[in-house]
Amino acid sequence: MGRSSKDKRDIYYRLAKEEGWRARSAFKLLQLDEEFCLFKGVQRAVDLCAAPGSWSQVLSRKLKKDDEKGTDVKIVAVDLQAMAPLPGVTQIQGDITKLSTAHEIIRHFEGHPADLVVCDGAPDVTGLHDVDEYIQAQLLLAALNITTHVLKTGGTFVAKIFRGKDITLLYSQLKIFFPSVTCAKPRSSRNSSIEAFVVCQGYSPPEGYVPNMSNPLLDHSYDVDFNQLEGPNRVIVPFLACGDLSAYDSDMTYPLQLDPNKAYQYLPPTQPPISPPYQQACHLRKNNLLSKEGLTSSCADEPKPSTKPPTSLKVPVEEVPSHQKEDVEDAH
């Protein structure tokens, strides 16, 4: 498969490169905004699990544009790993489960709470759906926990979810903090992907709720009355498909030449992947240095871990677990 084959299969991947977005997920936030007007009146926004930074890019372009002077708008991006700097975005390299991170965000907002918190984070996956769904839920709850420290009453929280078997448990938890919870699917998110987004509006914590980070928020359990495992009563939030129908279809295979008057040209990704965990392993594999069994001892040479980072990395797409493809591709 040539380098253009991903361009053929994924129209938004191509458009992201053309428009200079760091990942195709930028379109998801743009389309969520089309439906929910997320950015209206927003002065202070937080992007949790921000790397590689495409949502921060969107926040920066949209909020700064709306606010002509651009002086009052503050955007904070939080991630464990460092990412390439973005104009108008303050980066915090920190852990969203730490109280200190929450304090740092508030400090950047000069003591004011945030109007909008977004989180497009996805965990490292194991390919076992139950484990992956659980860990994704924990990531969302960690994001929700820090959100309760930094979000203003009436504020909005947007986060990625996996619509799996226990999604109603997350819905019931979000409903405690937000009167309006919607499950939204932007048209740029593939139909085949279990990914969707919760748009939680009008933050209003229960009376007497004190934000607390000393213990993690644990997910809910099934309930015999209101949220049943196998019964008819389940907490299912309304669903809304976002984005104009005239927008490109993320599932459709488009020819490389979209515009008859403009020849297709391959563009390299805007942001190459930031040292992925498999970097060393790929380097060894590429140079045939992985340990092998063999009858002769010459075949079983021990690989010598190289300290030099490889110059280029190419990871075959087939290695990515199916439901996770989109997220990994995002990172590229």
């Binding site: 619509r163 799996g164 078997k165 999604i167 109603t168 819905y171 139909n191 279990i194 389940r234 299912i236 309304p238 669903f239």
Partner: peptide, 8 residues
């Protein structure tokens, strides 16, 4: 039925 299931 609108919310027949909680997922696709």
């Amino acid at each position: 039925v609108v919310s027949a299931h909680a997922a696709p």
